[in-house]
């Protein structure tokens, strides 16, 4: 494992008087894909925003490499970390290719500018949006927008990549494809943090899973350590079963009618 790229220590955030994050510690190394999971309102997106340097913290620090994120200029931050927002929006009808090229903006007037064309092309391919290149962003479907935003993030070519629910609007094929892209980023040494709702997806792709509940880290470790029926049942306040299907962990909520044994037999 390489050095720590991103480190949150004792991060607390209060929004409108209520504590959203309470003393969160998280460490992400290069080459690692960390999934943030947890029930609605657990603070996943807030933690991601804190890691991205978007928020003033009430306590604690977030360090990107050696430097505190809140003390960095937005341009320096943009050259070190990229962020995929939960919901992509765009005020004007730019072409998909233009939107992806926006990811190259932090590298304008640097030596890396020469790579713009190649990286944009690669990003379009990896996010599977080559066929949309000449379309205008506002005319795309939700899933197509999400993939275009992902391509923009890939084009930014940063050591730290933060993805906020990248699979929310996607079909099964693209869910798998997007998380494969994320895992490949980790394989080449990037530090990747992904907010996910689908625990089975998290189990399949993450090196580590961090479970958040009510603004605090409830568990942090390898998928098979963290994803237990007891822990998840308590955190989500709904009984679940964790089943091993040919080596892959699958998390299934317990339902009154159809038993999951029948479904999976």
């Amino acid at each position: 494992m390489s050095a720590t790229r991103l480190r949150a220590e004792g991060v607390s955030v209060r929004l409108d008087g209520s504590t959203v994050l309470d003393g969160v510690d998280l460490e992400v190394r290069g080459g690692e894909l960390v999934a943030l999971v947890g029930p609605n309102g657990a603070g996943k997106s807030t933690l991601l925003a804190a890691l991205a340097g978007d928020l003033d913290l009430d306590a604690g620090t977030v360090r990107l490499g050696e430097r505190e994120v809140r003390s960095m200029r937005s341009l320096d931050l943009a050259r070190r970390r990229a962020v995929l927002p939960q919901q992509g929006r765009l005020a004007f009808g730019f072409l998909v290719r233009e939107v992806v090229a926006m990811g190259r903006a932090p590298w304008a007037r640097t030596g890396h500018e020469d790579d713009d064309e190649r990286l944009v092309d690669e990003a379009l391919q990896r996010a599977d949006v080559v066929h949309l290149t000449e379309r205008r962003y506002p005319t795309l479907s939700g899933g197509e927008r999400a993939r275009t935003d992902l391509a923009r993030v890939l084009a930014q070519d940063t050591a730290v990549v933060l993805l906020d629910e990248p699979t929310a609007a996607l079909d099964i094929r693209h869910q798998e494809a997007v998380l494969s892209v994320a895992r490949n980023l980790a394989r080449v040494g990037r530090a990747v943090v992904v907010v996910l709702h689908d625990l089975s997806l998290a189990a399949a792709y993450a090196d580590r899973i961090c479970v958040l509940a009510r603004g605090a880290v409830r568990a942090d470790g390898a998928p098979h350590e963290v994803l237990t029926a007891e822990l998840l049942g308590e955190v989500y306040q709904h009984p679940v079963r964790v089943v091993d299907v040919d080596g892959a962990l699958v998390v299934v909520p317990v339902r009154e009618e159809a038993s999951c044994d029948a479904l999976l037999s």
Partner: peptide, 21 residues
């Protein structure tokens, strides 16, 4: 003009690509 293009992404995403909004 180039930074104004990036602002179309919204304040937050524009900041993420390095614009001092």
């Amino acid at each position: 003009s180039r930074r104004l293009d990036l602002l179309a992404l919204g304040d937050r995403a524009a900041r993420h690509v390095g614009v001092d909004v």
